[in-house]
Amino acid sequence: MGKKELGLLVLVLVIGAITTALNPRFLSAVNLLNMANLIGLFGVFSIGQGLVIITGGIDLAVGSIFALLGVVFIDLLANHDVAWPLALLFVLVGGLLIGALHGLLVTRAKLQPFVVTLCGLLIYRGAARYYTGDATIGFGYAEGLESLTWLASGRSFGVPNPFLILVVVSAVMAVVLHRSVFGRYLFAVGRNEEAARYSGIRTGLVVAGAYIVSGGLAGLSTVLLVFYTNSVSPSAFGSFYELYAIAAAVLGGCSLRGGEGSILGIVLGTVLLQILQNLVNILGIPSSLNFAVMGGVILLGALADQELARRAKVGVVARA
């Protein structure tokens, strides 16, 4: 665990303690399980976002991908009687393909990631709304979904499945990012793309890989989110979620300049964001202030991080 992650963990504990002191219900089983569920839902796609940010890119399309894949997923199950494993596969592959498309546009057409995924954000949202004629779509009388429903929104050993899925995803992605050659390449590309090319790394493939992973995890998240809300309103479903993901990644130590970040940090960033949300609810702060609280804390975090980085640099110079 690096210094950043440790600092974040301390922050999580401190804010948790303060909230508990103000309202002991924060630590009630119901509240904790509810939070764990939300952490699972938001953590999975935040990890994908983090990978993209580590390469120096950004993925603004995540929220709209949820809407588009979400309406198609429900439509397949409710109106076309597609078997759920096939529908699940369709959504996962769809996410991967969208990610691959973004990767291709960024590395081959050399478009800026911001532009590519901003267009994605607009296009997928529009497509989702057109698909249902802007109507909310639900499962209706679809049958045979018990096992999928349980997988995506049930509990195992009393723990919400989305949280367990996040644990598995983060374990796998931690190996990918911190223990695999591909992960080292991701950091190398983010830190100095030119040097990465001089080292013989096919930087295009590496960057595209990050977008593909992000797209795939967005596909997985779509299924979890659909079963959390049980219906998809294409104009609102997943709206702003890309910003939650970016916030979690940045809070977790990813630098938007690329080359910095860790899976543990991103997960802790997600945890902190959910605690803040929860704090707003549980302390009776008007929920309209929700975003303002989140923004304020992220700003403070960024300032503290900057200050620490500056001190660390002074330390190096002093020693040299």
Partner: peptide, 27 residues
């Protein structure tokens, strides 16, 4: 500057070109 990763330790700068030879998938 174009060749090296300034913040990375020396050993990672040396090994970066042979990572796939040392271990195919995992570091």
């Amino acid at each position: 500057r174009a060749m090296l990763f300034a913040q990375e330790p020396v050993y990672r700068n040396i090994s970066i070109a042979i990572l796939e030879r040392i271990g195919r998938v995992l570091l």
